[in-house]
Amino acid sequence: MHTIKTLRVQFDSSLKPYEVPAFRGAVIAQVGFKDTWLFHNHIDAQTYIYRYPLIQYKSIAQKPVIFCLNEGVEEIHKLFAQPNSSLTIGTQKNEAKIGRLLMEEFTIELSTAPTYQYSILNWVALNQQRYLDYKKLERLTDKIALLEGILTANIISMAKGIGWHIPTLIQLHIKSIEHTRFVTFKKQRSLAFNLTFVCNVALPDFLGLGRNVSIGFGSIKQVKS
């Protein structure tokens, strides 16, 4: 088992999902680019840090949310310390009034069987090569098996990013695919999945898995039975 800190900061304004990149940009503009790499995962404008994002920007129930993990929980004070509390999202200037703060300690642990059920929204699983591999598969069972392997790898990558070594095998099964659609980010078109899966890993709600999690893709939520 591994205990992590999480902080969910919900602002008292409205935000549509397609506005999340602009929301992220507004926060980065507010805190500045220097010595704030957890906000944007860049050393400088040209150098990207390839690691799991510990500050993630989301639209949850049409509200702007920043989801922080571990060091990200400490880093977010740099936003709260800014004298100017407004955020310019696109062309609209908004007062960054906090509607809700929820800080928790969550124990990520493994069970002996896949007893935890989750929904995951807008999960971007496939890079360009993997998408071609996916399209070539004719049987649904083969497509599901490919996605299960990728989702398992996403959990392993996340665990590494939060400093947790998974001591045993992850058991994961996709129960259903509810919806797929194409999304575009930085002029790249990707297939996104809404699906339900079960696994033997206890994970916190609103954690992101997969590609583009820094802007809200791949958020999970436990489905209570």
Score class of each variant (00 low, 15 high):
2 H>Y: 15
19 E>F: 03
20 V>N: 01
21 P>L: 15
24 R>F: 13
25 G>F: 04
27 V>R: 03
30 Q>V: 09
30 Q>C: 08
35 D>T: 13
36 T>F: 02
37 W>P: 04
38 L>Y: 02
38 L>F: 03
39 F>S: 03
40 H>I: 14
41 N>S: 09
43 I>N: 05
46 Q>M: 08
46 Q>F: 14
47 T>V: 08
53 P>H: 04
58 K>T: 05
65 V>K: 01
69 L>N: 01
70 N>L: 09
73 V>A: 04
74 E>Y: 12
77 H>W: 13
78 K>N: 10
86 S>N: 12
88 T>K: 15
88 T>I: 14
92 Q>C: 13
94 N>V: 11
95 E>G: 07
97 K>Y: 09
100 R>I: 12
103 M>C: 07
106 F>R: 04
109 E>Q: 12
113 A>H: 15
113 A>C: 10
120 I>Q: 02
122 N>C: 07
123 W>N: 00
123 W>K: 00
130 R>A: 08
140 L>S: 11
141 T>Y: 06
142 D>I: 02
143 K>G: 00
143 K>L: 01
144 I>Y: 02
150 I>N: 00
152 T>W: 00
155 I>L: 13
158 M>N: 01
161 G>S: 15
164 W>M: 12
173 H>V: 04
176 S>H: 09
178 E>I: 02
179 H>E: 10
179 H>L: 11
181 R>L: 06
185 F>Q: 05
187 K>C: 07
187 K>D: 12
190 S>Q: 06
194 N>A: 13
194 N>Y: 03
195 L>I: 07
196 T>P: 04
197 F>V: 02
199 C>E: 01
204 P>H: 06
210 G>S: 13
213 V>I: 14
219 S>H: 05
220 I>S: 00
222 Q>L: 11
